[in-house]
Design a protein around this nucleic acid. Structure first.
Length: 872
RNA sequence: GGGCGUAUGGCGUAGUGGUAGCGCGCUUCCUUCACACGGAAGAGGUCACUGGUUCGAUCCCAGUUACGCCCA
């Protein structure tokens, strides 16, 4: 037997407190971790030693809710497991402060608006601070330049970032807080612009004049990924067109676009209209001769089966216009109103007069006026027939989208290139999705792309598209040959910076230049989080070590946006997958299983549950939900988590209270060996589960074992560990050592889930090795060395026997402490032999004076006779 | 309309081709020498429905229904 008893870490002397409590652990340890730099990334590590995470940057101006806590906990659990497994974990945090929510908040908070044409003002003071977040009137807002506006954005979002960081720290995210980035920062702008210029140089970015889905409220183009269909009330209006053989009736929901009608369309197989195809009809009111054409997308069973094609009422109109080579008679302007000038084609006096009636009106009032006019002229048959139909909206907008013709920037994404789609699908197959079925959502999206990625936005706040255009002799911009900045000069703002070879005085002058005014879609920046987080531009050495990342955690709702666009950019930039794993978290539902969202008003602020139950408890609730599965906000689960954390503290205090006599290091008792062997199995299985991104299973295994450990094992060895009941020093030592050994392993199994409680216990006696969160993930071999595997089944057998005694006592409604005179343990012969080894422990736990061993068909504890004075 | 997922005791959830576990809640009981922020015992399920494959299905296949999400 070894004599070097304290050389084994779990034999170190322990100092548990008088009273263990989970209260205050968050403050105590989050500060200690920060000071010790427990989660600091060591960049000296090699690529193979690094596990890097492309953390989702939360939208800082959005409100915090428990959904954040949920998915970020999933990531943290993985990060902690990997760190303990020996990886140097690169776990940065980003802040998404780009986009409309920030822009709006800054406008309202400071009473300003962005006008990129204005110069930068040093030491600008906004008119007021701390606006009430209600929309202030645009007229009252002071226009300021882009740089000033962004400075204000940074000021405001810094406050938000502090709030988030404080929450994350309390929750115990093991983020390296030295590694943060902001999507609004100059570095992020430079990354976005560099990637864009690379796209441009490779021919992946291009401009095009095209019909574009347009939000009239935000006055900006909207990309496919930002669309959503909403069911809207509408009505069919039956209109008569003059045809060669009398009236042709169509039904339309958008009579106000009659002036933009360029053709009627019917299905080529529709017998009713076959004769009309190729002929022309005359539009009512505007008296324009338009052709009748055939196209497969015309729906035979909808309305009268023949429809008018307008430029542009919906996306089908765009397809028809493009495929049938029809003229463009667009009448809706960027402001959503009917343009002042009648389009080409309307020439008759009556036609022009009709148009004058609607010119300048909103779509809504133009529709009213047109209907009145059609009813007066008798061209509309009957009343409008109300229907409900899907209409396209910008996901953040509240007016239906219009389609207007504009010059926009696009990035090729495979929407018009089947080979590229195939290449992207092939990349997706190499990405390990957790859970795996989420890959289908990615593939569906790629296969369903209908056009390239529209990245230009007609907003003011965001990453400027970094190009200028030379002006020709007439002062017209030469869009085909944009002027680009040198990569070293990034970031640039074309509205204030000047292209090489020009001076500021030439801005806007014929022969001079003009800056691009559009900015990029926020996803054009978000799609570069691996480059932003990894230091693509400013720290290439680090970037080479963390890219491609090991993990992208994210929500299932943004597979088509964030996941896809990130994958796309890496595909284009380096023909690589940006990460090897994607962990997809589910939704948080409220207790009624409705999705939590601000609009439903059922959002729970995350600080509350942490205050009420503790960070470990909230983490336990989150970690108990599998990836990809929705989870209900469940305070009951948090209470269970809290109970577990408290139980760990108390069980640990107890286990550590037993002295290990000097000179003993071995676990010799069969029951003790059995417990450690069972724990070894748990370690093996939990490790496998974790490696498969199944943290839930790992938690379940650890938890299941722990309760067995406290309920049965601890009770069984209590007396022996105290050295009571005439046990030998060997037997006492075996119990004390086994308890510590098991605790040493269990704490590490729980550490990724309950970082506070486990660290607290660790600190009671593991003072040499530092934080548990840098301790090595347990190995089964730590436990199984020198143990006899034949003892493995003993603990389970003992549990059954203990259960029998307990049941008898419970049925007799007596205390578990009541004494038992005699009991019979019946079991098959093979088990009986093993059970005899446990006689001492069984007698102790059941307070049984005498156990008779008898052979029987199955294991049971029977014929329990209580001692006289106890069974009152 | 298409895709994906889910459907297991009151609620929340595991799980396996050989007729089900766990937690909460519930019932009964036990107090304080690790833990009353505790412990023990117990009741409670025709595994959504209909077919099929199979000696046998909660698990595999097909269909139906309901719900959720994504897309049209």
């Amino acid at each position: 037997m070894s004599t070097a008893s304290f050389e084994l870490p779990f034999l170190a002397p322990a100092n548990p407190p008088e009273k263990a409590s989970v209260e205050g652990l968050e403050d105590k340890w989050s500060i200690a971790w920060d000071e010790a730099g427990v989660y600091r990334f060591n960049r000296a590590a090699t690529r193979e030693q690094i596990y890097s995470i492309d953390t989702p940057p939360p939208t800082v101006s959005g409100s915090l809710h428990v959904g954040h806590v949920f998915s970020y906990t999933h990531t943290d659990v993985v990060a902690r497991f990997k760190r303990m497994s020996g990886y140097e974990v690169y776990y940065p945090m980003g802040w998404d402060d780009n986009g409309l929510p920030t822009e709006r908040r800054v406008q309202n908070y400071f009473g300003v608006r962005c006008d990129p044409s204005l110069p930068y003002v040093e030491n600008f003071t906004p008119p007021f601070e701390g606006g009430d977040n209600k929309s202030s009137k645009a007229a009252d807002q002071i226009p300021i330049g882009r740089k000033n506006f962004i400075e204000l954005c940074e000021r405001l979002t810094q406050e938000d970032e502090k709030q988030f960081e404080a929450l994350w720290r309390r929750l115990g995210l093991s983020v390296d807080w030295a590694q943060t980035y902001q999507t609004i920062s100059p570095a992020a702008v430079a990354v976005s612009q560099k990637a864009f210029l690379n796209n441009l140089a490779r021919g992946e970015a291009y401009q095009s004049m095209a019909p574009t889905l347009w939000d009239v409220t935000f006055r900006t183009a909207v990309a496919q990924a930002e669309l959503e269909d909403r069911d809207q009330p509408g009505s069919y209006h039956r209109l008569g067109f003059d045809g060669p053989e009398g009236k042709v009736f169509i039904e339309t929901t958008r009579p106000e676009l009659l002036a933009a009608c360029v053709a009627l369309v019917a299905h080529p197989d529709d017998d009713r209209y076959k004769a009309l195809i190729g002929k022309t009809v005359r539009t009512p009111l505007f008296e324009v001769e338009v052709p009748v054409v055939a196209h497969r997308l015309a729906q035979i069973d909808k309305g009268s089966g023949i429809a008018m094609i307008c430029t542009f009422g919906d996306v089908t109109d765009v397809i028809w216009w493009r495929e049938l080579d029809l003229p463009n008679r667009a009448i809706i302007g960027f402001d959503g109103r009917i343009q002042a000038e009648a389009p080409e084609g309307i020439e008759t006096e009556r036609g022009l007069a009709s148009f004058a009636e609607i010119a300048g009106k909103t779509v809504f009032s133009a529709k009213q006026r047109i209907v009145e006019m059609l009813q007066e002229s008798g061209d509309m048959i009957g009343d409008a027939r109300p229907i409900t139909h899907p209409v396209k909206f910008f996901e953040k907008g509240d007016k239906p989208l219009e389609i207007v013709s504009t010059r926009q920037w696009y990035i090729r994404n495979g929407g018009r290139d089947a080979d590229m789609r195939e290449a992207l699908i092939a990349k997706g197959k190499k990405l390990a999705f957790h859970p795996d079925f989420m890959r289908v959502r990615y593939e569906n999206w790629v296969n369903g792309l209908t056009g390239d990625w529209l990245i230009s936005r007609q907003r003011f706040f965001g990453v400027p598209i970094p190009v200028w255009y030379q002006l020709d002799a007439n002062g017209e911009p030469m869009f085909e040959t944009p002027l680009v900045p040198a990569v070293e000069s990034l970031p640039i703002d074309p509205s204030s910076d000047v292209p090489a070879g020009f001076t500021e005085s030439q801005r806007g002058i014929a022969g001079g230049f003009v800056g691009e005014v559009d900015i990029m879609d926020t996803w054009a920046t978000s799609s570069l989080t691996p480059q932003l987080a990894g230091g693509w531009i400013e720290d290439p050495e680090k970037y080479a070590k963390v890219f491609p990342f090991d993990l992208r955690p994210q929500g299932q709702d943004i597979i088509r946006t964030w996941l896809f666009s990130t994958l796309l950019r890496s595909h284009q930039e380096s023909d690589q997958l940006p990460w090897s794993n994607a962990a997809i978290s589910g939704w948080i539902l409220d207790p009624d299983r409705k999705k939590m969202s601000k609009s439903k008003g059922n959002v729970v602020v995350p600080a509350e549950p942490i205050d009420n139950h503790g960070a470990d408890a909230v983490r336990y609730w989150a970690a108990a939900a599998r990836l990809g599965t929705d989870a209900a906000f469940d305070e009951g689960q948090m209470k269970v988590g809290r109970r577990l954390a408290i139980k760990i503290l108390n069980a640990a205090k107890f286990a550590l209270s037993f002295e290990v006599p000097t000179g003993y290091t071995a676990v010799t008792e069969p029951l003790d060996q059995s417990m450690l062997l069972a724990l070894a199995d748990v370690v093996r299985d939990a490790t496998t589960a974790f490696e498969n991104y199944d943290h839930t299973k790992a938690l379940e295994l650890a938890e299941g074992f722990f309760w067995k450990f406290t309920d049965d094992y601890l009770e069984l060895v209590k007396e022996r560990a105290y050295g009571q009941g005439g046990v030998t020093e060997d037997q006492q030592a075996s119990a004390a050592i086994a308890l510590r050994k098991a605790l040493h392993v269990m704490l590490r199994l729980f550490a990724p889930f309950l970082p506070y409680a486990t660290e607290e216990v660790w600190s009671w006696w593991q003072t040499e090795g530092g934080s548990i969160h840098r301790a090595a993930w347990p190995k089964a071999s730590e436990l199984t060395d020198a143990l006899d595997t034949a003892n493995a089944p003993l603990l389970s057998l003992a549990s059954v026997a203990v259960g029998g005694v307990r049941k008898a006592k419970s049925d007799a409604k007596v205390s578990m402490r009541s004494e038992v005179q005699t009991a019979v343990l019946r079991a098959p012969a093979a088990q009986l032999a093993s059970l005899r080894l446990l006689a001492g422990d069984l007698r102790a736990v059941g307070r049984i004076w005498q156990i008779e061993f008898e052979e029987g068909s199955e294991l049971e504890m029977t014929d329990i006779v209580f001692a006289e004075e106890q069974s009152q």
